[in-house]
Computed example of a mutant assay.
Amino acid sequence: MPAKSLAEFIAAYKEEDVTSEAFELENDRLLEIRLNGSVWAKAGAMVARTGQVKFTRQGLLEQGLGNLLKKAVSGEGMVLMKVEGQGRVYLADAGKKITLLRLDGETIFANGNDVLALETGIDNQITMMKRVAGMMSGGLFNVRLSGKGIVAITSHYDPLILKVSAATGPVFTDPNATVAWSGTLQPEIATDISLKTFVGRGSGESIQMKFAGEGWVVVQPYEETYMQAGQS
């Protein structure tokens, strides 16, 4: 590919407004937020901004007692920051692909690590699944998202949506590859004893998420590893 002139470089990659929405993808890895009020964003996700913008880490009162207790039990949590003011804010997360979802009173669940940003009309509540405590060494925690507004979720590469139905039977996924699922599903943790017997395999595919009922689940072609809160 021949070298670009400066004019060609600027023309190819300059910021452009395609819609009038508050959330707009500049490309599939970079989210622009046209800020006029406040939104919630993943802490540390800002890569650039313009205008008068204030960032405040989510306070204890804003997290709610239920979320605080669940974070204390799990040792984990989705760390959000409130972004307030007027201007433009650009967010990204380790080069992951970004998908914008519009909720109109619906409910979805997402891996907390895969939530990049959400409008203030979206309620977020940390959820805990049965039998998770003591079984996972990674950062498996999930967030219930409901209300009206836009949510930005991330995935490594293009996500795959699998339909879950009573006719086809349950779907099993690797927790570290599971991004989100419909609010109609209540996953359970399943273990595969035969896979546990492999030398050097004490986790991974031996622990799976089981989805049964009617709905859908989103997976990514990547097994993500996490750190517990407080680790670096």
Rank of each mutant, 00 (worst) to 15 (best):
G121S: 06
G169M: 13
N67D: 13
H156C: 03
T173N: 11
G105Y: 02
T191I: 09
L25G: 05
A12Y: 00
E21M: 00
E15K: 14
D192I: 12
E214W: 04
E62C: 01
T56N: 02
I33N: 05
P187Q: 08
G51A: 00
A3W: 01
G87P: 09
V179Q: 07
A133K: 12
A117F: 03
A166F: 10
Q231M: 07
W216F: 13
T120V: 10
D28T: 09
T168A: 15
L6G: 04
A94M: 14
G147M: 00
K82Q: 11
K96C: 14
E32F: 02
A177P: 13
H156K: 08
S74T: 15
M1L: 11
T225F: 09
I98F: 04
V171M: 10
K4C: 06
D192T: 10
V218Y: 03
L80S: 08
W181E: 11
G59K: 07
G37N: 14
T191L: 08
F109S: 00
T178P: 02
E84T: 06
Y222V: 09
R29G: 06
S146L: 06
T168I: 05
Q228T: 04
G87R: 07
T19L: 03
W40N: 01
P175R: 05
A229P: 00
I189H: 06
A72E: 14
T120D: 13
L6S: 11
F211V: 01
L195E: 13
I98Q: 04
I98T: 07
M135G: 06
A92P: 09
E62N: 07
G121W: 03
E62F: 01
Q228C: 08
A152W: 01
T178S: 05
F141R: 12
G213Q: 11
A11W: 09
V164M: 04
K71I: 03
Q52T: 10
K130G: 11
E76V: 05
L195R: 15
F9N: 11
E8K: 08
R29A: 07
F23W: 03
M135P: 04
R34A: 06
L69Y: 06
Q52P: 01
Y157Q: 06
K130Q: 11
E224L: 09
I153G: 00
S194D: 15
T191R: 14
V89R: 01
Y226R: 12
P175H: 05
R88Q: 15
